[in-house]
């Protein structure tokens, strides 16, 4: 497989991988690194890609596993994730921070357990069907629904609290 052909298959979902990586790793720099790493792995195993029905689902699973591994090794070595993206004067990031409510939701998403975070990302941001998500995460639809419902409810509760106190 030539590089051109390979890129035409894998580049369309680059941003999706990035967003998922960022959801898990928080830092945008680390998310970029993760995407790079996943693409390298995909490139090395590119002969296998044609065997997979959906290269995208395969790539998402890889990204998820890679990011969770990164997270584990970080916790093991007692390193704190550096939220360097706050110094980034990215237009979008400024825009998000400018919008208070949105910033709060981002924070709430950060505080969710990993699995719920990932499910919420894949469903509410990337809009995948439950069956697809179940395959990507090697789980079943019921478990995905439960995790998703918990994630949404947690955010709802916090939002209601904020609303009551008039902060949000």
């Amino acid at each position: 497989m030539q590089q051109k052909e390979f890129l035409s298959i894998v580049l369309p979902f680059k941003d999706r991988l990035y967003r998922l990586a960022k959801r898990i790793l928080i830092s945008s720099e680390e998310a970029e690194d993760a995407v790079q790493e996943v693409y390298l792995k995909l490139w090395k195993g590119r002969l296998k890609i044609s065997n997979y029905k959906s290269a995208e689902a395969f790539a998402i699973t890889m990204t998820k596993n890679y990011c969770l591994d990164r997270l584990k090794s970080k916790q093991a070595s007692n390193l704190k994730i550096v939220h360097s993206n706050y110094q980034n004067s990215d237009n979008l990031e400024k825009q998000i921070e400018a919008n208070d409510g949105v910033a709060i939701v981002f924070k709430l998403m950060e505080s969710l357990p990993e699995q719920q975070k990932i499910v919420l990302q894949l469903r509410d941001v990337e809009e995948f069907e439950f069956a697809e998500i179940a395959k990507m995460l090697d789980s079943n639809e019921t478990a995905i629904r439960v995790a998703l419902s918990r994630a949404r409810k947690t955010i709802r509760e916090k939002l209601i609290q904020q609303h009551k106190y008039g902060i949000g």
Binding site: E32, Q36, L40, W43, L92, V105, M109, Q121, V125
Partner: peptide, 25 residues
């Protein structure tokens, strides 16, 4: 009204894009 930030947040999350191009050998 209290749910509005959630959907605004999800929308904003969808707009994030990677800035680097993957480098392949």
């Amino acid at each position: 009204q209290m749910y509005a930030p959630l959907f605004a947040g999800l929308k904003a999350a969808k707009q994030e894009v990677a800035t680097k191009e993957p480098v392949l050998p």
